[in-house]
């Protein structure tokens, strides 16, 4: 009543940007939902195409040449083992190295040099996997051959190092190629996080008389922990699904053991699909897609576990 005539000092009406807000929020939410739906479609499709293989009888599966009389589970398990083992080797090698490289770029190298080095690492993330495979064959294999031979000769009592056979087309080499492949991705992510460490924390630490290493342990590493885990996950995601490099470097086999220096023992799921799919037909395609589904589930649970680790620690975020 009175308000109609008495214009208040504060402007009335809708809050500014309400329309923009709801449109923008709608788009964001929509994108998130699209991703969920997309993933559901992929999972659904994989399951749909795998069903014939999962439901097939033993006799039917014996008709699939490359399974060599195995049933589905005993076909998938060695493959899954090889996939995980190669990724594990890759992570064990790549993560500590990446942390070192990221620290070097963010806190050790002179500022002018650091930008160039960061650029270099980014470039390496761009090298196609098939080229990494060629490199593994042409450069890495001859390089690590003598090292493996020495290990096998002098430390052969340790089962994983026993009975090396040249050329070095074994899981250890494949793991090393994978490590090099995921190095740039892990490093780039960790480096970005390290560079975001609040300068105040670092200066406070140094002001208390800490050495550079103590400052890193007190300020940089705790701040970057979730970034490191997230980077390792990114790397693992790439290593688990990596196809061409493993295909070119490894002499495959279907055994579950830790003899990583012997050829013809292990194979990864992705490389196996790429290698068998062109000649597969009918039920064989379904079997390979079933192994793809298994890989999908594997990454699902690996990521779930990694998330649980992150969730247990308080997340470092400016936005929470």
């Amino acid at each position: 009543m009175a308000a109609v005539t008495d214009e208040p000092a504060i402007r009335r009406g809708p809050a500014p940007g309400r329309l923009g807000n709801s449109i923008f929020k709608g788009f964001s939410l929509g994108s998130g939902i699209v991703i969920v739906v997309l993933l559901g479609l992929v999972a659904g499709f994989l399951l749909y195409r795998s069903l014939p293989a999962i439901l097939a009888s033993r006799e039917q599966l014996e008709g699939v040449g490359f399974m060599q009389g195995r049933d589905l589970l005993s076909y998938v398990l060695p493959l899954a083992f090889g996939t995980v083992l190669s990724s594990a080797i890759a992570l064990i090698v790549a993560v500590p190295l990446s942390i070192g490289i990221a620290l070097f770029i963010s806190h050790y190298a002179p500022r002018r040099l650091a930008q160039g080095l960061g650029y270099l690492v980014d470039l390496l993330a761009a090298i196609p996997s098939v080229v990494f495979g060629l490199w593994g064959v042409a450069f890495l294999m001859p390089l690590v051959g003598p090292v493996f031979a020495w290990l096998s000769e002098n430390m052969g009592w340790f089962p994983p190092f026993s009975d090396y056979q040249a050329p070095a087309r074994n899981l250890a080499t494949a793991g090393l190629v994978l490590a090099v492949m995921i190095l740039p991705i892990i490093t780039a992510t960790i480096r970005e996080v390290f560079l975001q460490t609040p300068t105040l924390h670092e200066e406070a630490s140094l002001a208390l008389g800490a050495t550079r290493w103590e400052m890193i342990r007190q300020a940089v590493l705790p701040f970057g922990r979730s970034g490191i885990i997230s980077a390792a996950m990114l790397g693992m995601g790439r290593a688990l699904g990596e196809t061409m490099a493993v295909l070119l470097v490894l002499s495959p086999g279907f055994v579950i053991n830790f003899f990583v220096l012997q050829p013809g023992q292990h194979q990864s799921i992705a490389a196996n699909i790429a290698s068998q799919l062109p000649e597969a037909s009918g039920l064989g395609v379904d079997v390979l897609i079933a192994t793809g589904l298994f890989l999908f589930l594997l990454t699902f649970f690996v990521n779930l576990a990694a998330r649980a680790i992150i969730a247990r620690r308080a997340e470092f975020s400016g936005a929470n």
């Binding site: 490359f66 050329p167 087309r169 002499s251 086999g253 050829p263 013809g264 023992q265």
Partner: peptide, 21 residues
């Protein structure tokens, strides 16, 4: 047989892979 039946062997993918090995 289309798939190599013996485990523990050296092998290469595609013609060029075998040539390289």
């Amino acid at each position: 047989i289309e798939t190599w039946p013996i485990p523990g062997t050296q092998s290469g993918a595609q013609t060029s892979g075998l040539f390289d090995v």
